[in-house]
Amino acid sequence: MSAAEDVVTEAPAVEAVPKRAMTLGLGTSLVVLAALCLAPLFVKNFIIFQMTMLLIYALAVLALNILTGGSGQFSLGQSAFYAVGAYTSAILMEHANMNYALTLPIAGVICFAFGFIFGQPALRLSGVYLALATFALATAMPQLLKLGFFEHWTGGVQGLVVTKPDAPFGLPMSQDMWLYYFTLAVSIGIYIASVNLLKSRSGRAFMAIRDNEIAASAMGVDVALYKTLAFGVSAGITGVAGGLGAIAVQFVAPDGYTITLAISLFLGMVVGGVGWLPGSIVGSAFIIFVPNIAEGISKGLSGAVFGVLLFLVIFLVPHGARQVAMIAQGLIAKLKN
């Protein structure tokens, strides 16, 4: 309305998280790892399946965390990358008879490329505009998957049924347990790589952009390159998660990858703590189990109960699980003294 230009000293959308605060200490990491390794030995196959999904969504939340928490870019379109990864794995397994393990790196590479290309126009957008662009991507994806043109490969609206792999070398374990340990190995690998990425030169560049883009650029950071790179890496990891998801669920269909999934992943990131990588698994647990809890409380009002629980969480700990961890750390330090 007014011709005058607004000059804004804008606070960054994502607050600065020092990089050391992005990970867990070695001791805590080992305890968590031991728990993840041993738990399946004592529970039913169904719980193992849920734990597999927990790891898969944790990977997807982690990927979003690298993008938002790391480089400060917002995305509501992660479901699109997840879908591309899932379909890549499913199509390679069912049409090309490829080994499931081999399909994952391919899914990752394809999604990396896809994310990198999408990152180009996204470069010029920020805040709500970027939110809309990624949102558009998420809404478009199921429609693209349904297109008659791709139907021969994607199965169109009917989707594709995927065969679940058996444990190799005649290992005496169920399909579910094997897939869990396989997913766990992939997740640990990606987690370690992500932590190292954020500690590296590239990671520092991401964070410089997140904290102040103009200042970063003045300091000689190639803003365009690192922003698109962040999109690529995030999409690549999400793609691997999508591939694993397709194998675990044994089915891909356009209805599985709607905007609802993107919103869930976003919630997972907020609940886990933006920019705190270990929080990803807490966020993932939230989006898998809290809807079940809500449903247990009331069928007719499950949505409302979920909303109320979500409000409770963000009221009590607006910074998510990271805040809980910080408080716990503080308490432990006090006890030691």
């Binding site: 976003f266 009002l301 949505g303 409302a304 979920f306 909303g307 979500l310």
Partner: peptide, 30 residues
């Protein structure tokens, strides 16, 4: 609902909007 979140990060507020969405939709349906 949102005044208490005024000091929380922006993304937490967005999560609040999503929670509100779920509540309103579900209550209207009931």
């Amino acid at each position: 609902l949102f005044k208490p979140l005024a000091k929380a990060p922006v993304l937490t507020n967005v999560a609040g909007f999503i929670a509100l969405f779920a509540i309103v939709n579900s209550v209207a349906g009931l």
